[in-house]
């Protein structure tokens, strides 16, 4: 029997990368998964793959339906999970992106866009499940911070600000929801082989990846930790930051 048998999960940004890997692993462990992505084609592709493997999925994707920065879209995503998949137990706030510029060259659009997607999106999705999880007296929320949320990087003031805020957000919500048996934790992945990190300039890529003691991370590395947090093994763990970086941060 799978570790998430009978559970329903929303995984935002699950059209590709870490989110897709989480969705796949959740399906393998018996969960039904709502696939969400701003990129409709990527979301549908993920859904078809998982359905072909026997998974129960629903899709809310594209713009604006799949846009987590839009409050009514977030409410509809939650509604779709409950109606199409028969409940809701897990929310993984994985959707996120980068738009790198050094501070003095960063325009407001780049600043606000990243804060909206990475931070406000996490807030809005969390708010959308809040009452439901409270009344249910059960829920697992996993948020995605980043190594950059701990120490930043050159050119990532917007990203680092959003990702460090997600850590404080997680702790605050965890305090609030602990009496309701809802666990809220946050991951800080290191360098994982995804489209996002492949944006690192090629001349830097080798030195960056060679610095990782356990080698370049794969989406599955992160997905397995998310699975653990969402399983009953971690029912008594909340408000925690877990760094998944293959020894890059110790």
């Amino acid at each position: 029997m799978g570790r998430l048998e009978g559970k329903v999960a929303i995984v935002t940004g699950s059209g590709r990368g870490i989110g897709k890997s989480i969705a796949r692993l959740f399906i393998e462990e018996g969960a039904a998964v709502l696939i969400n992505d701003l990129d409709e084609e990527a979301a549908q592709l993920t859904a078809r793959e998982l359905q072909a493997a026997g998974g129960k999925v629903s899709v809310v994707a594209g713009n604006p339906d799949g846009d987590v920065t839009n409050e009514s879209s977030c409410l509809r995503i939650v509604e779709a999970a409950r109606e199409d998949l028969g409940g809701l137990h897990i929310l993984v706030n994985n959707a996120g992106t980068t738009l790198d510029r050094v501070i003095h060259k960063m325009d407001d659009r780049a600043w606000r866009f990243i804060l909206d997607v990475n931070l406000k999106g996490t807030f809005l999705m969390t708010k959308a499940v809040y009452d439901y999880f409270k009344r249910q007296r059960y829920g697992k929320i996993v948020n995605m911070s980043s190594m950059a949320g701990l120490g930043s990087n050159i050119g990532q003031a917007n990203y680092a600000t959003s990702k460090s805020a997600v850590i404080s957000f997680t702790k605050s919500v965890a305090i609030d929801l602990a009496p309701y048996n809802v666990c809220v934790n946050v991951l800080a992945p290191g360098i994982i082989d995804t489209r996002l990190t492949r944006a690192i300039p090629s001349e830097k890529w080798e030195s960056v990846t060679q610095a990782i003691p356990m080698g370049l991370g794969r989406p599955e590395h992160v997905a397995r930790v998310v699975l653990g947090l969402c399983s009953e093994d971690f029912d008594y763990v909340t408000g925690q930051l877990i760094v998944v970086s293959g020894g890059l941060i110790i």
Binding site: G151, A160, T161, S164, S172, I175
Partner: peptide, 27 residues
Amino acid sequence: RTGCAGMIDYASSMGGVLGLMKSVSRE
């Protein structure tokens, strides 16, 4: 750093300040 349930918005923004602070330091 500790989280604050009664001021989720404020606590989150102050977490953001720390990320911004480190970004300035980096750059």
